[in-house]
Design a protein around this nucleic acid. Structure first.
Lengths: 159, 159
DNA sequence: GTAATACCTGTAGTCACTAGAGGTTCAAGT
DNA sequence: ACTTGAACCTCTAGTGACTACAGGTATTAC
């Protein structure tokens, strides 16, 4: 049998926000933030108004964190969660989302690789003299000296 | 002879912010923003209070844009500009900055490559059934199914 | 002269958090 | 039972690097 993000185990272990954060690899602040923006449901509170979580929350948050690590935007994660919450749904949409994301990742890879090559080339050519003859400064000043195929895109190559 | 970012050509052509932006590949808003945060000096104004630029500004802004495209932070760009403004300075610092940056770029590349491979693998394994049996959702839910070497870092792989 | 475009300032919004202030609650040790 | 310290709470503001908008002025083309 397969477990889904919404499955509830027979015996629920209740944990605080700190342990949830540790288990899923993010900070308590981020957990509260995710609750605030609706990625996580409002957690039930104990007597003293502190959030209590079950292992279901760990799974959901791990999912979120994993997807964010993969570079999915929060909005994409929201869509993925919506799908994950409906396991009977055909997974074509998930697939489409992942494919679109793959395309973005590959584009970034291409640009980042070009940047790396250029940086390497710049560093190798640096004779170690004064800034006036430094190729790094040259390349950054003059577009013609840049060995890249096309023009650089926005500053968001990496973001 | 070599031109530096601060060289003044004999015959200065004065242009408006729009043309400067076009020439250097950014938006007028961004130019004003750079002036505001001190990356660009306050531009002289014409009768009607509009900024007028010389070709020196195009070079400086191109430098900034290029460096940003290379993934340097604005603060790093500020340092680079400081160095470029002092051509007699030994370029060791520039070199160090570029090398540090190269290391960061390579780290990002490694992570992004891993992400791409994982995405590809996920997409290939998707049988096209329902979300309940979709491997993409699996990989994002369960860290054990992820074929990456180590744990994923922060969400800032790509930023 | 008039209309379209480019420019100005200042403020607020974006994304995805992160940090801090100022207070309450919990768990452990004595 | 008491105390200490860590963990938790809410709310607000800050980050980076812009981007967008409102409401106005200047320039340019016809």
């Amino acid at each position: 049998m397969k477990e889904h993000l919404s499955d509830q185990p027979a015996q629920e272990r209740h944990i605080g926000i700190g342990e949830l954060a540790r288990e899923s690899g993010c900070k308590p602040e981020t957990v509260r933030y995710y609750e605030q923006i609706g990625l996580l449901p409002s957690a039930p509170r104990n007597e003293g108004n502190q959030r209590r979580y079950t292992t279901a929350a760990i799974r959901r948050l791990t999912f979120i964190r994993h997807a964010r690590d993969f570079g999915f935007s929060v909005e994409a994660v929201r869509e993925l969660l919506e799908m994950a919450d409906h396991p009977a749904m055909p997974c074509q949409e998930v697939d489409t989302l992942a494919k679109r994301h793959l395309a973005e990742v590959e584009a970034r890879l291409a640009r980042l690789t070009a940047v790396r090559d250029e940086l390497k080339r710049m560093i190798n050519q640096c004779a170690g003299g004064s800034v006036g003859q430094c190729h790094i400064i040259d390349v950054l000043s003059d577009h013609r000296l840049c060995h890249q195929a096309g023009p650089h895109g926005g500053a968001e190559i990496i973001g």
